[in-house]
């Protein structure tokens, strides 16, 4: 198959029936592999990795904290992509997938924030610091809340899809702006305080520091979280498609009867 034909074949999944049939077929694979990856990764990480010489056993939190944080951001990116597809090509599945993904993103952000707070307590001596990275996640959380609230508030599904898509686009720009603003703001406040440097433990800086012992179980957990996210979004999109169909059928029933 040529690339163009493949691309065309991809759009066929915009058909709700086709999407439901295919997702039903592939979902067991995603559920099983994701749960297997997460269980193996967590067990490996929890039972079979040594304590860090500086952080002690708290290093084991990384297997939950980093994958959740990654998925919190990736989920927003996925919503951005599907919102664009909806605005450009008007495929209903795309808009519904964005709606289905948002609560998953909220939970991922919550996990990242909660594990971060629990981890931060013994490491930095505080549950919460207005560190740029922490603050950005809190702002991302607010964006998710607003997005979900807008979906819930609007009756007409097409209007809701349109408005939330635009909000997602505008919100993305402002989320990136906030990220830079927060970076600037905190530097302005604390010029390299030692607690803040400890913040480099979280997030991407870790990968450089983390030796292979921690890296492989972490990689497994990340893969597991990605697969879990896909499984959840496929499942929840299916639910949204059915809910939408119920609404359409009931409306038709009212008109006819």
């Amino acid at each position: 198959m040529s690339i163009a034909a493949k691309a065309n074949a991809l759009w066929e999944y915009a058909n709700p029936r086709k999407f439901l049939a295919t997702s039903e077929r592939v979902m067991p694979f995603f559920w099983i592999t994701s749960i297997a990856c997460i269980v193996i990764g967590l067990v490996w990480g929890f039972f079979f990795t040594p304590d860090d010489y500086k952080q002690g056993s708290t290093v084991k939190i990384i297997y939950l904290h980093v994958p959740a944080a990654l998925m919190a951001i990736n989920c927003w990116l996925m919503m951005l992509a599907t919102s664009l597809v909806w605005l450009v090509r008007r495929h209903h599945v795309s808009a519904l997938a964005a709606r289905a993904a948002a609560p998953v993103g909220i939970v991922m952000t919550l996990i990242a924030l909660a594990t971060g707070a629990i981890w931060g307590q013994p490491m930095w001596g505080t549950w919460w610091a207005w560190d740029p990275r922490l603050t950005s996640f809190l702002i991302l959380f607010l964006f998710y809340l607003g997005y979900v609230a807008l979906w819930e508030a609007i009756e007409d599904p097409d209007t809701a899809a349109d408005l939330t898509s635009v909000l997602c686009l505008v919100g993305s720009v402002f989320a990136i702006l906030s990220r830079y603003a927060v970076n600037f703001w905190n530097q302005g406040l604390h010029q390299g305080a030692s607690v803040m440097r400890a913040a480099a433990i979280t997030g991407t800086d870790t990968e450089e520091k983390v030796s292979n012992i921690y890296f492989y179980p972490l990689l497994l957990c990340i893969i597991g979280f990605v697969l879990l996210f896909i499984a959840l979004v496929l499942y929840r999109t299916g639910t949204e498609i059915r809910a939408r169909r119920i609404k359409a059928l009931l409306a038709r029933e009212r008109v006819n009867g």
Partner: peptide, 12 residues
Amino acid sequence: LLVLPLYVPTLI
């Protein structure tokens, strides 16, 4: 709820 997160960069 929608506007306040958008105000963050301006406020900062």
